[in-house]
């Protein structure tokens, strides 16, 4: 069973200028969006639980670059970044966070429960681990229908201890289902570090007894993510079955907006921020390769701040859902039986 005990791999800089700038833009959009969401939460415009993706941007950005039309994505409640990476309009995402009619779920789902049929984004799930069998089921449907589409099921290091994850692994491997399990190991599940919750802390090895290939990836390096992702997606697409990618990443903020994060030292966060930030890292590469100047990148940032501001404005101007929406969407109408 080939599992590679590898941590960070130095990214090859064979990526094109266009691709590097695209990644930069995509990650920065997530970062600025999440910062704004945090701000709106602080102002009481977003309520309930709100889990920010800041620090983990390279994971979804790199993985999304490996997908083609018809491939599906599913994740947990820390989902804003995944939706933006899937190409969803920031306005619709932000308006869902504020619970307005312009939100992707008409304001009925909220931060943790968002979906898009159009972009094949299947949520947005509030129950830790539940998305893993669901993502496996999407792969089952892909195989059943005979196409070569692949599903990506994202979940956290904490979710990796839920039993249904292993029930899914077994079926996916038994039936060679085209699913890539992306474990976003940001090192904490709420206040619990991986070592305090997991007997085997190398999560990419969790598939060994199911004969699933696994690999650890530097999740703070978008190019490393993309390289590993391409391999895994190709493997699943070719009919060989599931694949596990353990993304070593980090969340900068508290678990949700109300987490004081006393379980880790400020220096730990600062160290990752200064030495491993995915956006700063890519920025350095872009400038070093002469693809853009500091000023040109600053302009991109300005442009993205504008997009995010528009999204925030929209999310505050969009009216609350109509009262009649309370009763809609509970069941579908039965047609033509």
């Amino acid at each position: 069973m080939a599992t590679k005990p590898k941590g960070a791999k130095k990214a090859p800089s064979k990526a094109s200028k266009a691709e590097l700038l695209e990644f930069y833009r995509a990650m920065l959009l997530i970062r600025r969006f999440e910062e704004k969401a945090g701000q709106l939460y602080g102002m009481g415009k977003i309520a309930g639980f709100c889990h920010l993706y800041i620090g983990q941007e390279a994971v979804v950005t790199g993985m999304q670059a490996c997908l083609k039309d018809g491939d599906q994505v599913i994740t947990g409640y820390r989902d804003h970044g995944h939706m933006l990476a899937c190409g969803l309009d920031p306005k619709g995402v932000m308006a869902e966070l504020t619970g307005r009619s312009g939100g992707l779920s008409k304001g009925k789902g909220g931060s943790m429960h968002m979906f898009s049929r159009e972009k094949n984004f299947f949520g947005g799930h509030g129950i830790v681990g539940a998305q893993v069998p669901l993502g496996t089921g999407l792969a089952f449907a892909n195989k059943y229908k005979g196409g070569d589409n692949v599903s990506l099921a994202y979940f956290g290091d904490g979710a990796a201890n839920q039993g249904q994850v292993y029930e899914s692994f077994n079926m996916a491997s038994l039936w060679d289902l085209p699913v890539v399990y992306v474990i976003e190991n940001n090192q904490y599940a709420m206040g619990t570090s991986v070592a305090r919750a997991s007997a085997e802390v190398e999560l990419y090895k969790r598939g060994i007894s199911f004969e699933i290939e696994g690999e650890a990836v530097d999740g703070m390096d978008v190019l490393a993510v993309k390289e590993a992702g391409e391999k895994a997606v190709k493997y699943a697409r070719s009919g060989k079955g599931p694949y596990i990618l353990e993304m070593k990443t980090y969340r900068y903020r508290g678990h949700s907006m109300s987490d004081p994060a006393k379980y880790r030292k400020r220096e730990e966060v600062d160290d990752i921020r200064t030495h491993h930030d995915p956006i700063e890292g890519l920025k350095g590469q872009i400038i070093e390769a002469g693809h853009a100047t500091e000023d040109e990148l600053k302009n991109i940032d300005k442009e993205i701040k504008g997009i995010v501001k528009d999204a925030a404005d929209f999310s505050l101007e969009s009216p609350e859902p109509d009262a009649s929406e309370l009763w809609t969407d509970v069941l579908r109408e039965v047609e033509g039986v």
Binding site: G48, R100, S105, G107, E320
Partner: peptide, 11 residues
């Protein structure tokens, strides 16, 4: 009400 609990404040 006989619906899943909505997120929007008014609902």
């Amino acid at each position: 009400k006989d619906v899943p609990l909505p997120y929007a404040a008014n609902l």
